[in-house]
Amino acid sequence: MNLTLYVWRQKGPKDAGRLVRYEAKDVSPDMSFLEMLDLVNEGLVRKGDDPIAFDHDCREGICGMCAQVINGIPQGPQKKTTVCQLHMRHFKNGDTIYIEPLRARAFPVIRDLVVDRGSLDKIIQSGGYISAHTGGVPDGNAILIPKDDADRAMDAAECIGCGACVAACPNGSAMLFTAAKVTQLATLPQGRTEAARRVCVMTEEMLGQGFGNCGNHYECQAVCPKDIKVQFIAKLNREFIKARLK
């Protein structure tokens, strides 16, 4: 099939950037979205043009590196699917596709569709872990964890840190990302010790990194490729209240 693409091209952080039109020809429905871009890029390179820069790595939906805004939806129109796992069979011959980078103040554009998501790491650095030392920890079975809690923690832990939630949020908030980590660790007994401090410092760091506040729009959940739920944000809020009442 043949497609018309409008792709955001921006040479560097200071460049203004604009949408450029490309024709993607002979796209196979079995291709992934990134393979379609590979095809376009090979054509550009052969012509001596700069290929479209985009982040990608594992190409199996788990590393979280690829994330672009396709027709206005971060991680694309297919629910619970990353861009690398979005296949072209979900598009029709003749479709026009808009491709833009994730947008938020905390995610400055580096080039074309590549953005800097280091601000998410900063949130984790502020306290998104259990401060366990290497070695000297008890036996794995010394801490019993009810299956429901382990499952719930796992639901939250599935976050791949792609930043789609931030890009989709009208407020550029990283609340879903933060809440997923807070919930994972606050649900497990190992993580309770630091729970109060963690929720406070992580939400503070979120603001400090230039993310917005949660407006309860739930766009984040709608685009999340790993189906992280906004109930985790409610959990974060409860943890916050608990921490402040202490």
Binding site: I130, T134, V137, P138, G140, P146, A150, Q184
Partner: peptide, 22 residues
Amino acid sequence: GSVIDQAVAQGVPFARDYAGYL
């Protein structure tokens, strides 16, 4: 064995049975 203990201490949500064991 220590690898498992370390991961559990870090909050890795390994699968558990209904009694709460790994």
